[in-house]
C-alpha cells in the first residue's frame, strides 16, 4: 500500500513537470510570434489589471506624495538652474516650430506624406512592475483600445526605455531594454559621428553592472568618439526614426578584435519609471 501511494505521487510529479514544460514552451512561442496574447489571457489580464489599480493607485499616490515632500527641499536650487534653461528652451522651441512648418511645406512640395520621423505619442502611467529578478517588465495602463500595438517603442523622460511586449485591451506589458533575454527585440539605431558620417547598427544587450547599453559588431572605419549621440534609425519599420537612446560612453574592440563594441549611457534612469510615452508610427 505504501509503495502504491509513493508511485502515484511520483507519477503526479512527472505529469506536472511535463505539463509545466509544455505550457512554458507554448507561452514563449506565443509571446514571440503572435501579435497579441490569446483572447482568454487578454480578458483575464484586463480584469486583473483593473483590480490591480485598486491597490496600485493608492500605493503609487503615497509614494508620489512622499517623493514630492523630499523634492520640496531642493526646489529652490533647482528653480534657479531651470530658469536659466527656460530662456534657451523658448528660443529652441520657436526655431523648432519654424523648422517643422518648413519641413511640412517641403514635404508637400515633393508629395511625401509621412516620413520615418513622424510619430504620435500615447502617454501612459506605470501600474506595476514584475516582481522578478530577470524579467524587467512594467505594466502600463494603456492597451489596444488606446491604439497600442505590440513592438512599439516606449520612451520615458528624454530617451528610449523599452518596447511593448504584450497588449491587452486596457493594459500592456513593456519589456525594458535592461532585459537581456534571448527573445528580446533589439532596436536598430544610428550614430552620427563628429565628422558627419552615419553608422548604423543594432543594440545588442545591457550590461547590468555598469548600467550601459552595449552594441556589438560595428565594422565601420568611421571614428566613433565619446559623447556621440545614438538615436533610433527607423529601419525595420516599427520604430520611428530619431528617438534618442543615449550617448556613447566608450568605444572599444570586441572580444575577438575584429569589430568595434560600443557602450552607451542611456538617456533616462531606467530603474525609476512612472510615466512613459508609447511612440506610434504613422502607417
Amino acid at each position: 500500500m505504501q509503495k502504491f501511494s509513493f508511485n502515484r505521487r511520483l507519477v503526479i510529479i512527472i505529469v506536472c513537470l511535463i505539463v509545466s514544460f509544455a505550457l512554458m514552451t507554448v507561452s514563449v512561442a506565443v509571446r514571440n510570434k503572435r501579435s497579441t496574447p490569446p483572447l482568454i489571457q487578454q480578458f483575464g489580464n484586463d480584469i486583473v489589471g483593473l483590480t490591480d489599480r485598486i491597490v496600485a493607485l493608492p500605493a503609487n499616490g503615497l509614494s508620489g506624495s512622499v517623493s514630492s515632500i523630499s523634492e520640496l527641499l531642493n526646489t529652490y536650487q533647482e528653480n534657479q538652474q531651470l530658469k536659466k534653461q527656460v530662456g534657451e528652451l523658448a528660443q529652441t522651441k520657436v526655431r523648432d516650430q519654424t523648422l517643422a512648418k518648413e519641413n511640412k511645406q517641403l514635404k508637400q512640395q515633393i508629395k511625401l506624406n509621412d516620413s520615418l520621423t513622424d510619430y504620435s505619442a500615447i502617454s501612459a502611467a506605470v501600474i506595476t512592475r514584475t516582481p522578478s529578478s530577470w524579467q524587467n517588465q512594467v505594466v502600463i495602463n494603456k492597451g489596444s483600445s488606446a491604439g497600442v500595438v505590440k513592438n512599439m517603442p516606449v520612451m520615458s523622460g528624454s530617451g528610449l526605455v523599452g518596447r511593448v511586449a504584450e497588449v491587452n485591451k486596457t493594459n500592456s506589458k513593456v519589456e525594458l531594454i535592461t532585459d537581456n533575454n534571448d527573445s528580446a527585440n533589439r532596436f536598430a539605431v544610428q550614430i552620427t559621428t563628429k565628422s558627419g558620417k552615419t553608422v548604423n547598427g543594432v543594440l545588442s544587450g545591457f550590461n547590468a553592472n555598469s548600467g550601459q547599453i552595449t552594441m556589438n559588431n560595428i565594422t565601420t572605419k568611421a571614428k566613433i568618439s565619446k559623447g556621440d549621440k545614438v538615436v533610433t534609425s527607423g529601419l525595420g519599420g516599427v520604430t520611428p526614426k530619431g528617438l534618442y537612446v543615449g550617448q556613447v560612453a566608450k568605444a572599444s574592440g570586441d572580444d575577438y578584435g575584429l569589430s568595434t563594441k560600443l557602450y552607451i549611457t542611456p538617456a533616462t534612469d531606467l530603474s525609476d519609471l512612472n510615466i512613459v510615452t508609447v511612440a506610434v508610427t504613422k502607417q
Binding site: A56, N60, I127, D272
Partner: peptide, 22 residues
C-alpha cells in the same frame, strides 16, 4: 498586487545590479 506595487515603487532600491531583491 502589493508585490508588484512594492517592486514598482522601490524599484531603484530593490533592483540594483549587485543585489536584486524580489
Amino acid at each position: 498586487f502589493l508585490d508588484g506595487s512594492i517592486s514598482q515603487i522601490f524599484s531603484t532600491h530593490l533592483f540594483r545590479p549587485s543585489a536584486i531583491m524580489v
